[in-house]
């Protein structure tokens, strides 16, 4: 126990503060979930509408069905590794590093995927555009995944560094691990939902 997090301006116990932080993060997950729901709605709405037969115009290349899932693998591994660390405290430091690396590598892979999208076409003036509503939705989903990867990596890096510091309140840190677990679980679920949507061409 150190002086670093011993004090809290509300004078509340670490237990109370921890519970409160978890509730706050879960409410933010509700907001993020609403955003993801909106993306799913966009995907299936435009797909079923197929305006001007331009959901997937003829001759446009697509990603494979597996591409969405491979993009989500980093998120899934991170959630599982974090869960393993929560269940076995001896693994916590290692699991934190695995979580961070999984998210970092996942972010790099997602970036690579976004940089090599097969459906970008060019107009008469040579300017690029996303050809078809499928392409538009794909880039949006990939962007959301990227946001989750980067935010997750920030949290994971914090947990790695804090795991090596001894001058922190252990009770509050325990709650923060659980709170981070809520976030990692959610972004994995979101990645899977996006992958499922992306498999509907």
């Amino acid at each position: 126990m150190s002086t670093d997090t011993e004090f809290h301006i509300h004078h509340d116990s670490a237990e109370k503060v921890g519970r409160r932080e978890r509730l706050g993060v879960r409410l933010l997950i509700v907001a993020d979930g609403s955003f993801v729901f909106g993306m799913m709605f966009s995907w299936f709405y435009l797909r079923n509408l197929n305006e001007n037969n331009a959901w997937l115009p003829k001759g446009v290349h697509t990603f494979t069905t597996a591409s969405g899932y491979t993009a989500a693998i980093g998120l899934i591994i991170a959630a599982l590794a974090h869960r393993a660390g929560e269940m076995n405290h001896g693994l916590r430091r290692v699991s934190s590093i695995v979580v961070f690396l999984a998210l970092l590598i996942g972010a790099v892979y997602q970036w690579h995927q976004m940089a090599h999208m097969p459906f970008i076409a060019h107009d008469d003036n040579g300017r690029p555009f996303y050809n078809g509503a499928y392409a538009s939705n794909w880039v949006l989903v990939a962007g959301a995944n990227m946001f989750h990867y980067l935010l997750g990596a920030f949290v994971a890096l914090g947990l790695v560094i804090r795991g090596y510091r001894t001058k922190l309140d252990p009770v509050l840190e325990e709650w923060r691990q659980r709170t981070a677990g809520s976030w990692f679980t959610w972004i994995a679920i979101s990645g899977i939902l996006c992958a499922i949507a992306a498999s509907f061409k």
């Binding site: 435009l46 331009a54 690029p128 996303y130 050809n131 078809g132 509503a133 538009s136």
Partner: peptide, 14 residues
């Protein structure tokens, strides 16, 4: 900005 077509009917938007 990046010429997607969520709301452009020419490229499948609505």
């Amino acid at each position: 900005t990046i010429a997607t077509g969520f709301y452009d009917a020419n490229v499948g938007g609505s």
